[in-house]
């Protein structure tokens, strides 16, 4: 069985790409990150609404044409 110390180059490439993706996300403007959070809330709300009383979708304007946001 493969361990974290014994990864094939293909799997290592996937992990490296994931790491790069995290760093790219970390470097985004904060307003873009907020837009992504609201998107995550939209995705999670139907799943969590019955078991997490905090589950909600922020009712804020996250239109993509605002400064600092990108159109998906």
């Amino acid at each position: 069985m493969a361990t974290m110390e014994n990864l094939t180059p293909e799997i290592q490439h996937i992990f490296d790409a994931k790491e790069k993706r995290r760093k790219d996300l970390a470097a985004l403007p904060i307003a873009e990150k907020v837009r992504m959070v609201v998107q995550m809330q939209r995705m999670a709300y139907p799943i969590l609404k019955d078991r997490d009383p905090r589950a909600c979708i922020w009712k804020i304007d996250v239109s993509e044409n605002k400064k600092g946001c990108k159109t998906p």
Binding site: R22, L25, A26, L28, I30, K33, V34, M36, V37, M40, Q41, A44, D52, R54, A55, C56
Partner: peptide, 12 residues
Amino acid sequence: AMFYAEPVMTFD
């Protein structure tokens, strides 16, 4: 945390 790292799910 999002000011310094990737966005994470939060509700508040």
